[in-house]
């Protein structure tokens, strides 16, 4: 086979990765889709950005991306956080791909720590950046052990931990990276998304792909997959709720960031999903603290 006909800036391959690497990742993705929630090992490459900064998600995105795709990148729900900006620029440079901040326009959304508020639709792909793919890691650090637990579907350790939480705190004291069970078989880490987002994973019409570069694992949820947050009958899963609407767009039922406004205890709550908030504001919805739209900061 000859060298790629599609090269981007600096002579690097389309979307940076060479053909063989893409094939290796693609094969892992196909198996991940076929075994929902199971962590498929893959030979993650050294990428030109640091481990822990999205190298897994970036490799998955690079492996699936084509010229017809429209890419959105968010971090903490926001398109304009520095690492999201940086990753978006990477793909703009290496793949010359169309980018957007609009959830509805994107075919591929790479995310760190959030699922967009706007419900995803069929044909969309959500790519999660995952730091620690192993939901049992902090209960048992050895991969040799946790692999066997997954193989045997032996999740007793996890149930004991959750039950201890209830005994100590009266509730499951886990607010993000809240473990889920996939199709009644695999316990899976949803990545450090807040548990607020967990219900969005269940029966989503979108394909969800998870990439952990440093830990060299890929896993997936096909559309319309059963994803259930772990709980107990007498202590059912409770998603986080906020008392007030977004101070900028007035939205309720969305995830809010707390913004400290002064050093005298002043704070307000605003949407973490910047696209959702901006769209609402553009539609004329305004919260109590809205004071017009900003220009871009430079430092």
């Amino acid at each position: 086979m000859t060298a790629s006909t599609a090269t981007a800036a600096g002579g690097y391959a389309f979307a940076y990765l060479d053909d063989q690497t893409k094939r290796m990742i693609r094969r892992a993705i196909l198996k991940a889709i076929a075994i929902p929630g199971h962590q498929v090992p893959f030979a993650a490459r050294d990428m030109p950005m640091p481990y822990g900064w999205g190298t897994g998600g970036i490799q998955v995105t690079a492996a699936i991306l084509g010229p017809a795709d429209v890419l959105k990148v968010i971090d903490q729900g926001a398109d304009d956080t520095t690492n999201a900006v940086s990753i978006r620029k990477f793909f703009k440079t290496t793949a010359n791909v169309a980018v957007t901040t609009r959830t509805t326009e994107a075919t591929v959304i790479q995310t760190r720590h959030r699922i967009p508020e706007t419900p995803l639709g069929p044909g969309q792909i959500l790519v999660y950046q995952v730091p620690i793919p192993e939901p049992l890691r902090f209960l048992e650090p050895r991969e040799t052990e946790t692999r066997v637990m997954h193989a045997l579907a032996d999740y007793g350790l996890m149930h004991v931990k959750l039950y201890e939480d209830i005994a100590t705190h009266g509730r499951i004291a886990k607010t993000y990276a809240y473990p889920v069970k996939v199709e009644g078989r695999y316990v899976m880490d949803p990545s450090p998304t807040p548990k607020f987002d967990n219900p969005k994973m269940h029966l989503s019409p979108a394909l969800q792909l998870f990439g952990a570069g440093r830990e060299k694992r890929i896993y997936a949820l096909p559309p319309f997959t059963h994803v259930v947050s772990l709980d107990f009958e007498d202590h059912p899963f409770e998603p986080t709720r906020f008392d007030a609407p977004c101070a900028l767009c007035g939205a309720t039922g969305v995830y809010l960031d707390e913004v400290v406004t002064d050093d005298a205890g002043g704070r307000m709550f605003v949407c973490s999903d910047t696209d959702h908030c901006e769209t609402r504001r553009a539609e004329g919805h305004h919260g109590t603290e809205w004071a017009g739209e900003a220009t871009e900061a430079t430092a």
Partner: peptide, 25 residues
């Protein structure tokens, strides 16, 4: 050390969504 420095230093990235969840708890 490339993996180690990346993961240690990734704590510089915003984590305010998770922190918010923990704050509430």
């Amino acid at each position: 050390n490339i993996q180690a420095t990346g993961f240690v230093e990734h704590l510089k990235l915003p984590h305010y969504v998770d922190f918010q969840a923990e704050l509430g708890l």
